[in-house]
Protein backbone atom coordinates (compact mmCIF):
# COMPACT_ATOMS: atom_id res chain seq x y z
CA UNK A 1 0.00 0.00 0.00
CA UNK A 2 2.98 2.32 -0.20
CA UNK A 3 2.62 5.06 -2.74
CA UNK A 4 6.32 5.64 -3.23
CA UNK A 5 7.87 2.46 -4.48
CA UNK A 6 11.23 2.12 -6.20
CA UNK A 7 12.59 5.39 -4.98
CA UNK A 8 15.71 5.88 -2.97
CA UNK A 9 14.78 7.66 0.23
CA UNK A 10 11.62 9.01 -1.24
CA UNK A 11 10.22 11.15 -3.94
CA UNK A 12 12.42 14.15 -4.58
CA UNK A 13 15.67 12.54 -3.69
CA UNK A 14 16.21 10.24 -6.62
CA UNK A 15 17.64 12.97 -8.81
CA UNK A 16 19.30 14.99 -6.13
CA UNK A 17 23.09 14.85 -6.10
CA UNK A 18 24.37 12.67 -3.29
CA UNK A 19 25.13 14.46 -0.12
CA UNK A 20 28.73 15.40 0.61
CA UNK A 21 30.62 13.33 3.15
CA UNK A 22 32.44 16.36 4.45
CA UNK A 23 29.99 17.39 7.14
CA UNK A 24 30.45 14.01 8.79
CA UNK A 25 34.20 14.18 8.52
CA UNK A 26 34.31 17.72 9.80
CA UNK A 27 32.11 16.95 12.76
CA UNK A 28 34.27 14.02 13.67
CA UNK A 29 37.47 16.01 13.15
CA UNK A 30 36.23 18.87 15.27
CA UNK A 31 35.54 16.53 18.12
CA UNK A 32 38.75 14.55 17.65
CA UNK A 33 40.91 17.68 17.63
CA UNK A 34 38.98 19.03 20.58
CA UNK A 35 39.54 15.79 22.45
CA UNK A 36 43.28 15.78 21.73
CA UNK A 37 43.60 19.41 22.75
CA UNK A 38 41.51 18.92 25.85
CA UNK A 39 43.51 15.95 27.05
CA UNK A 40 46.75 17.62 26.02
CA UNK A 41 45.91 20.64 28.14
CA UNK A 42 45.53 18.48 31.21
CA UNK A 43 48.90 16.92 30.55
CA UNK A 44 50.34 20.35 29.82
CA UNK A 45 49.07 21.67 33.08
CA UNK A 46 50.75 18.86 35.00
CA UNK A 47 53.92 19.54 33.06
CA UNK A 48 54.11 23.25 33.78
CA UNK A 49 52.94 22.82 37.34
CA UNK A 50 55.93 20.62 38.05
CA UNK A 51 57.52 23.86 39.11
CA UNK A 52 55.52 23.55 42.28
CA UNK A 53 57.58 20.49 43.12
CA UNK A 54 60.74 22.47 42.70
CA UNK A 55 62.94 23.82 39.99
CA UNK A 56 64.73 20.53 39.60
CA UNK A 57 61.55 18.69 38.90
CA UNK A 58 60.54 21.16 36.25
CA UNK A 59 64.03 21.02 34.76
CA UNK A 60 63.96 17.25 34.59
CA UNK A 61 60.63 17.11 32.89
CA UNK A 62 61.68 19.71 30.38
CA UNK A 63 64.82 17.83 29.65
CA UNK A 64 62.88 14.65 29.35
CA UNK A 65 60.84 16.17 26.57
CA UNK A 66 64.02 17.31 24.93
CA UNK A 67 65.23 13.72 24.91
CA UNK A 68 68.08 14.39 27.33
CA UNK A 69 67.59 11.18 29.27
CA UNK A 70 67.48 9.05 26.17
CA UNK A 71 70.29 10.52 24.20
CA UNK A 72 72.34 12.05 26.96
CA UNK A 73 71.99 15.36 25.20
CA UNK A 74 69.09 17.82 24.88
CA UNK A 75 67.46 18.31 21.49
CA UNK A 76 65.08 21.27 21.92
CA UNK A 77 64.02 20.65 18.33
CA UNK A 78 61.99 17.71 19.65
CA UNK A 79 59.82 20.20 21.47
CA UNK A 80 59.33 22.13 18.27
CA UNK A 81 58.01 19.00 16.67
CA UNK A 82 55.42 18.53 19.42
CA UNK A 83 54.52 22.20 19.32
CA UNK A 84 54.17 22.06 15.57
CA UNK A 85 51.80 19.14 15.82
CA UNK A 86 49.68 20.80 18.48
CA UNK A 87 49.71 24.01 16.49
CA UNK A 88 48.40 22.18 13.46
CA UNK A 89 45.67 20.45 15.45
CA UNK A 90 44.70 23.74 17.02
CA UNK A 91 44.40 25.42 13.66
CA UNK A 92 42.25 22.62 12.30
CA UNK A 93 40.11 22.70 15.42
CA UNK A 94 39.68 26.44 15.35
CA UNK A 95 38.87 26.39 11.67
CA UNK A 96 36.18 23.75 12.16
CA UNK A 97 34.74 25.21 15.30
CA UNK A 98 34.48 28.66 13.84
CA UNK A 99 31.80 27.40 11.47
CA UNK A 100 29.57 27.33 14.49
CA UNK A 101 30.06 30.96 15.45
CA UNK A 102 27.26 33.37 14.67
CA UNK A 103 27.83 34.17 11.01
CA UNK A 104 26.59 37.74 11.11
CA UNK A 105 25.35 40.44 13.40
CA UNK A 106 21.72 39.30 13.29
CA UNK A 107 22.66 35.80 14.35
CA UNK A 108 24.87 37.24 17.05
CA UNK A 109 22.07 39.42 18.43
CA UNK A 110 19.58 36.59 18.24
CA UNK A 111 21.82 34.26 20.16
CA UNK A 112 22.65 36.82 22.83
CA UNK A 113 18.98 37.60 23.35
CA UNK A 114 18.05 33.93 23.33
CA UNK A 115 20.70 33.07 25.89
CA UNK A 116 19.60 35.84 28.18
CA UNK A 117 15.90 34.99 27.95
CA UNK A 118 16.25 31.26 28.39
CA UNK A 119 18.98 31.36 31.03
CA UNK A 120 19.59 27.71 30.19
CA UNK A 121 22.85 26.39 31.59
CA UNK A 122 24.16 24.34 28.69
CA UNK A 123 23.28 27.07 26.22
CA UNK A 124 25.19 29.56 28.31
CA UNK A 125 28.11 27.16 28.57
CA UNK A 126 28.27 27.00 24.81
CA UNK A 127 28.44 30.74 24.66
CA UNK A 128 31.29 30.69 27.16
CA UNK A 129 32.97 28.15 24.95
CA UNK A 130 32.57 30.26 21.87
CA UNK A 131 33.99 33.36 23.54
CA UNK A 132 36.90 31.55 25.15
CA UNK A 133 37.59 29.78 21.89
CA UNK A 134 37.73 33.12 20.16
CA UNK A 135 40.19 34.43 22.75
CA UNK A 136 42.31 31.32 22.60
CA UNK A 137 42.68 31.70 18.91
CA UNK A 138 44.90 34.72 19.48
CA UNK A 139 46.51 33.79 22.75
CA UNK A 140 47.42 30.26 21.83
CA UNK A 141 48.82 31.39 18.53
CA UNK A 142 51.24 33.79 20.20
CA UNK A 143 52.20 31.31 22.89
CA UNK A 144 52.73 28.53 20.44
CA UNK A 145 54.74 30.69 18.12
CA UNK A 146 57.05 31.48 20.98
CA UNK A 147 57.37 27.81 21.89
CA UNK A 148 57.87 26.84 18.30
CA UNK A 149 60.65 29.28 17.66
CA UNK A 150 62.42 29.12 21.02
CA UNK A 151 61.97 25.57 22.19
CA UNK A 152 65.23 25.76 24.04
CA UNK A 153 64.03 28.57 26.26
CA UNK A 154 61.97 26.39 28.51
CA UNK A 155 63.15 25.82 32.02
CA UNK A 156 62.73 26.99 35.61
CA UNK A 157 64.55 30.27 35.07
CA UNK A 158 63.90 30.65 31.40
CA UNK A 159 60.16 30.27 31.81
CA UNK A 160 60.00 32.30 34.99
CA UNK A 161 61.93 35.14 33.38
CA UNK A 162 59.55 35.10 30.47
CA UNK A 163 56.56 35.15 32.78
CA UNK A 164 57.82 37.93 34.95
CA UNK A 165 60.46 39.97 33.18
CA UNK A 166 59.06 39.17 29.75
CA UNK A 167 55.64 40.30 31.06
CA UNK A 168 53.82 37.24 29.75
CA UNK A 169 51.93 36.66 32.97
CA UNK A 170 48.85 38.75 32.08
CA UNK A 171 48.48 36.75 28.91
CA UNK A 172 48.86 33.47 30.76
CA UNK A 173 46.36 34.54 33.36
CA UNK A 174 43.72 35.13 30.74
CA UNK A 175 44.73 32.03 28.84
CA UNK A 176 44.49 29.91 31.95
CA UNK A 177 40.89 30.77 32.61
CA UNK A 178 39.98 30.62 28.97
CA UNK A 179 41.54 27.28 28.32
CA UNK A 180 40.28 25.57 31.42
CA UNK A 181 36.74 26.75 30.91
CA UNK A 182 36.84 25.97 27.23
CA UNK A 183 38.46 22.58 27.55
CA UNK A 184 36.33 21.48 30.50
CA UNK A 185 33.09 22.42 28.83
CA UNK A 186 34.35 20.91 25.60
CA UNK A 187 35.08 17.53 27.13
CA UNK A 188 31.70 17.51 28.87
CA UNK A 189 30.09 18.37 25.57
CA UNK A 190 31.92 15.57 23.85
CA UNK A 191 30.35 13.12 26.27
CA UNK A 192 26.78 14.32 25.75
CA UNK A 193 27.30 14.86 22.06
CA UNK A 194 28.40 11.31 21.35
CA UNK A 195 26.57 9.60 24.13
CA UNK A 196 29.66 8.54 26.04
CA UNK A 197 29.38 7.43 29.66
CA UNK A 198 25.62 7.67 29.35
CA UNK A 199 24.68 4.53 31.20
CA UNK A 200 21.06 3.61 31.82
CA UNK A 201 19.79 6.95 33.01
CA UNK A 202 21.03 9.68 30.70
CA UNK A 203 19.73 12.47 32.90
CA UNK A 204 21.50 11.21 36.00
CA UNK A 205 24.78 10.64 34.23
CA UNK A 206 24.60 14.06 32.63
CA UNK A 207 24.23 15.57 36.06
CA UNK A 208 27.23 13.60 37.25
CA UNK A 209 29.30 14.63 34.26
CA UNK A 210 28.42 18.24 34.83
CA UNK A 211 29.56 18.05 38.45
CA UNK A 212 32.77 16.29 37.44
CA UNK A 213 33.38 18.95 34.82
CA UNK A 214 33.13 21.76 37.36
CA UNK A 215 35.32 19.96 39.87
CA UNK A 216 38.03 19.47 37.25
CA UNK A 217 37.80 23.04 36.01
CA UNK A 218 38.17 24.44 39.50
CA UNK A 219 41.01 22.05 40.23
CA UNK A 220 42.94 22.98 37.12
CA UNK A 221 42.42 26.69 37.53
CA UNK A 222 43.63 26.49 41.11
CA UNK A 223 46.62 24.46 40.06
CA UNK A 224 47.30 26.89 37.23
CA UNK A 225 47.11 29.92 39.49
CA UNK A 226 49.53 28.36 41.94
CA UNK A 227 51.84 27.51 39.09
CA UNK A 228 51.66 30.96 37.64
CA UNK A 229 52.34 32.44 41.08
CA UNK A 230 55.35 30.17 41.44
CA UNK A 231 56.77 31.29 38.09
CA UNK A 232 56.12 34.91 38.98
CA UNK A 233 57.87 34.51 42.30
CA UNK A 234 60.88 32.84 40.77
CA UNK A 235 60.90 35.37 37.96
CA UNK A 236 60.75 38.22 40.45
CA UNK A 237 63.62 36.85 42.51
CA UNK A 238 65.56 36.20 39.37
CA UNK A 239 64.84 39.54 37.73
CA UNK A 240 68.41 40.73 38.02
CA UNK A 241 69.83 37.73 36.29
CA UNK A 242 67.52 37.40 33.32
CA UNK A 243 68.95 35.16 30.69
CA UNK A 244 70.74 32.89 33.11
CA UNK A 245 69.91 29.26 32.49
CA UNK A 246 69.04 26.97 35.29
CA UNK A 247 71.45 24.26 36.38
CA UNK A 248 69.96 21.50 38.48
CA UNK A 249 71.06 21.46 42.06
CA UNK A 250 72.68 18.04 41.86
CA UNK A 251 75.11 19.16 39.24
CA UNK A 252 78.27 19.75 41.29
CA UNK A 253 79.65 23.10 40.36
CA UNK A 254 83.08 23.14 38.74
CA UNK A 255 85.63 23.17 41.59
CA UNK A 256 87.91 25.38 39.50
CA UNK A 257 85.27 28.01 39.31
CA UNK A 258 84.69 27.76 42.99
CA UNK A 259 88.33 28.19 43.64
CA UNK A 260 88.33 31.41 41.79
Amino acid sequence: MDSTPNVIAGVGLADRPRKSRWPARMDLAQSATGLVLGLFMWGHMFFVSSILLGKDAMWSITKMFEGYFFFGKAYPGAVSVIVGAIFAILIVHAFLAMRKFPANYTQYRTFIGHRKLMAHEDTTLWWVQAITGFLLFFIAAVHLYQMLMHPGDIGPYESADRVWSGRWWPLYLVALFAVELHGGIGLYRLCVKWGWLEGKDANASRKRLKTLKWVLTVFFIALGLATLAAYMKIGYDHRDRVGERYTPSWVVPNPMEKAK
Partner: peptide
Amino acid sequence: DFYELVGDD
Protein backbone atom coordinates in the same frame (compact mmCIF):
# COMPACT_ATOMS: atom_id res chain seq x y z
CA ASP B 1 19.23 7.11 2.82
CA PHE B 2 19.07 8.77 6.21
CA TYR B 3 22.42 10.40 5.56
CA GLU B 4 20.90 12.06 2.53
CA LEU B 5 18.25 13.58 4.79
CA VAL B 6 20.17 14.66 7.88
CA GLY B 7 23.85 14.31 7.02
CA ASP B 8 24.69 18.00 6.96
CA ASP B 9 24.81 21.13 9.04
